[in-house]
């Protein structure tokens, strides 16, 4: 990493952490327990579009581990990591196909995030009883993913001059 890249990466890490914190202070729940808006994912998407998937991956992992140690617990880190890594993989692949706009990419990211977390929860408690919750979480992921995607589109539209590559 070049020095200016390191600085920019630090700024984005701080931004993602702050978003995690804001979400902790103001929980955006939609009457669904456990559903979150995933504000930090906004930063991940911006980095994914502005640089490449490798930096988005690094940022995602750093963000999850840091916010896990600061605000959460070890099991929380594992759940977040499973959701975050799967959603980033799906988003990076969809972006590469170039067939979807940022909203579609974010949608798929939100849905796959929730699905990944539920699968890990199923492994952890060793029961399929939680699978009843899957349709609800898919819809929740679709809604939050769309909202984050719209925000990301507006930000990308206004920051075309910002080149990080």
């Amino acid at each position: 990493m070049k020095i200016n890249k390191v600085a920019v990466f630090g700024v984005f890490t701080a931004l993602a952490l702050i978003f995690s914190y804001i979400e902790l202070l103001i929980p955006f729940e939609f009457g669904i327990p456990g559903a979150k808006l995933g504000l930090a994912n906004l930063v991940i998407i911006l980095v994914l579009y502005k640089t490449d998937w490798k930096e988005a991956l690094l940022l995602s992992v750093v963000r999850i581990i840091l916010s896990g140690f600061i605000f959460g617990s070890l099991s929380g880190i594992l759940y977040s990591l499973s959701g975050g890594l799967i959603s980033l993989a799906v988003m990076a692949l969809l972006k590469r196909t170039d067939k979807f706009s940022v909203i579609g990419v974010s949608m798929a990211g939100g849905v796959s995030h929730n699905m990944g977390q539920l699968f890990v929860a199923m492994l952890a408690v060793n029961t399929y009883a939680v699978s009843y919750y899957l349709p609800v979480l898919i819809i929740a992921g679709l809604i939050t993913g769309t909202l984050i995607g719209i925000a990301a589109r507006e930000i990308l539209k206004r920051t075309t001059a910002l080149m990080l590559r």
Binding site: K99, S101, I103, G104, M107
Partner: peptide, 13 residues
């Protein structure tokens, strides 16, 4: 939003 996005949303729903 592109057409593919709507198709994706429909499939997910």
């Amino acid at each position: 939003m592109r057409k593919n996005d709507w198709i994706l949303a429909g499939c997910i729903l």
